[in-house]
């Protein structure tokens, strides 16, 4: 592009930013940078009393998900058949116009904070998210330290 007085460098930056955003948008929410999908995606949060693990596993049969906690290592594995929801008797591969959803076996392992108490675990599957709540060991909970005045 020839540089002249009507050239607006900010517009050019804006254009490049928008292009990059588009590329990243294509890449990030569905796939990792190298192109493969991450399934299930996982978020971990921590409150004063417990550790919460959100496993984004849409369309799985909860009975076929294996979840275990050993010490502070949480493992989740299972299988998802992405074609089950089609509700079609005989699935013909050539009839797919798009196929982006994960299908097959999955397995993920993650290390949780050391404060978790493996005895206090509960998990529920709702709207495609497995929420695992793990209590913390009493002695590991943040203690409020009182400052005494003399």
């Amino acid at each position: 592009m020839p540089i002249n007085w009507t050239w607006d460098p900010f517009e050019e930056f804006e254009r490049i930013r928008a292009e990059l955003d588009r590329l990243l948008e294509w890449a990030s929410p569905v796939r990792s940078i190298r192109g493969e999908e991450i399934y299930p995606r996982i978020n971990v949060g921590e409150s004063a009393e417990e550790v919460l693990v959100y496993i984004f596993a849409p369309g799985v049969d909860p009975g076929k998900v294996e979840l275990s906690l050993e010490g502070n290592v949480l493992s989740v594995s299972g299988e998802r058949d992405s074609e089950a929801e089609l509700g079609v008797k005989e699935v013909r591969p050539e009839r797919f116009l798009r196929q982006e959803r994960f299908s097959g076996k999955f397995s993920r392992v993650l290390t949780l904070p050391e404060s978790v108490d493996p005895e206090k675990v509960e998990a529920e599957y709702r709207n495609g998210i497995i929420l695992v709540r793990i209590g913390k060991k009493a002695e590991r909970r943040a203690r409020k330290i009182e400052v005494k005045t003399s």
Binding site: E25, W26, P29, V30, E37, S82, E83, L86, V88, V91, R95, F96, L97, R98, Q99, E100, R101, F102
Partner: peptide, 10 residues
């Protein structure tokens, strides 16, 4: 977020 989709023609 852009959800992944499958599209199947019958």
């Amino acid at each position: 977020m852009s959800p992944p989709v499958d599209v199947y023609e019958t």
